[in-house]
Write a protein that binds this DNA or RNA. Sequence first.
DNA 1: TCTGGGGTCCTAGGACCC
DNA 2: TCTGGGGTCCTAGGACCC
Length: 365
Amino acid sequence: MQWIVHVDMDAYYVSCEIRDRPELAGAPVIVGHDPEAGPSRGVVLSASYAARAKGVRSALPVSLAATRCPEAVWIAPDFEKYERTAHDIRVLLRRHAARVVPLSIDEAALEVERPDPGSVRSWAAEIQAEVLRSLRLPCSLGASPFATVAKIATDQAKPAGIRVVPPEETAAFLRPLKVTAVPGIGPKTAERLHEIAIDTVGELADAPLPVLTSVLGRSAVGWRLLARGTPEPGLAELGPDQGPVQRSMDRTLARDSRDPAVLYPLLEQMAEGLGRDLRESSLRFQSVVVRLRWSDFGQLQHGRKLPAPTEGEAVLRREALKLAATLLARERDGAQRAVRRISLGVGDLSPAPPGQRALESFLAA
DNA sequence: TCTGGGGTCCTAGGACCC
DNA sequence: TCTGGGGTCCTAGGACCC
C-alpha cells in the first residue's frame, strides 16, 4: 500500500541555533533581529516552544515579541546555516524513501510502500530517531495515503510526534478540526465560511454544495470531498518536483519615502543582487515585475513579459527602472503615498544553456 | 517602537485569433 | 451588415504558505 509521509522540522531555525548552543535547550529563544539592537521593522522568524508559551509566534512584530517575552534570548538569522542543514536533511531522507519532494526549507513529502498503518508508524519512528541522532534536530511526521491529510496529520503531531491516519479513519480524524487546519484555507476564507456557520471540517463536509460554492467558488467540490475523508484521487500522488518558477527580492525601507533619489538606487542595487543570484543559479528569466507597498499597506504592481528568455543584470536593471517609473507616475495622479517596501521579481525561469552563457560573458566583456 | 522576505497558485478581464 | 463562441496569452490582484 502506498503512503505519503510528510516530514516537518519543529521550530526549524530555532532548533538549528539550539543545536549549536545546547545550553539554550528549553529556554525562550527567538530567531529574528533583536529590537534592542536598534530600530527594526522586522518580525519573528521562529520561536522556541518556551517562547511560544509566552505568546510569541512566527510573523509577530519583533517589538511586540519583546514586550511579551522580555527574557527571550535573541539570535540573528543565519540563512546559510539553515540552507546547509536543509540539504543535509534531504540527503538523509533520500536514503530512506524512493521519492522525496521538498516543499519548503523545513518540509518534505515522501512516497513509501508499506503494508499497514503499524509498519508506517515504525518506519516514521526510525526516520525521526535518525534525524535526531545524526543531525540533532527534532521533527514531526504525518502519514496518510493522501498528501493533504498527511500534512494536516503532521501539524497535529507537533512537536516531536508521529500521526498515522489510515484511510478509513480519515473522515473521523478531520471532522473535529477547525477549517483553518486545512492547508489553503486561511483567515479570509475562514471568515467567509464562519459567516455561513461553518467553523469545523465536519461542518464543511455536511454543507450543501450550492451554499459552499457561493463562498469557495469552483474549488468547493474538492474541499468538500477532502472534508468528507474521500479526497480526489490526485492527492494520493506527489506532484512533479518542478524547479523554481520565479525568484524575487524584497526590501523594506528603514523609513517610508517617495524620493526617487532613495528609491531608484535601491532598486538598481536589488536588480544587481537578483541578477547575480540568477547567474549563479544559471537561470534565465522572461518576465519582470515590480511591486510597491505603500505606507498604508496598499500594493501596486506592474510587470512585463519579455519577447524571449533573457539573462544579464543590465536588462533586469533597465526593465525594473521602467516598471517602477510607471508605478510612481500612476501614483502621482493618485494619493501620492510614500513607499514602504519595494519588490523586484522575475518569472518564467528556464535553465541557461552553458554555451549561451559563454557568449553572453564574451559580449559583456 | 505594529505588520519581513521569500515563495506558489488561482481568478478575472481584455486582447487577439480562428 | 451583423456579430457567436472557444481558446490562449498577458497583466493585475489576491489568498495563502513557511
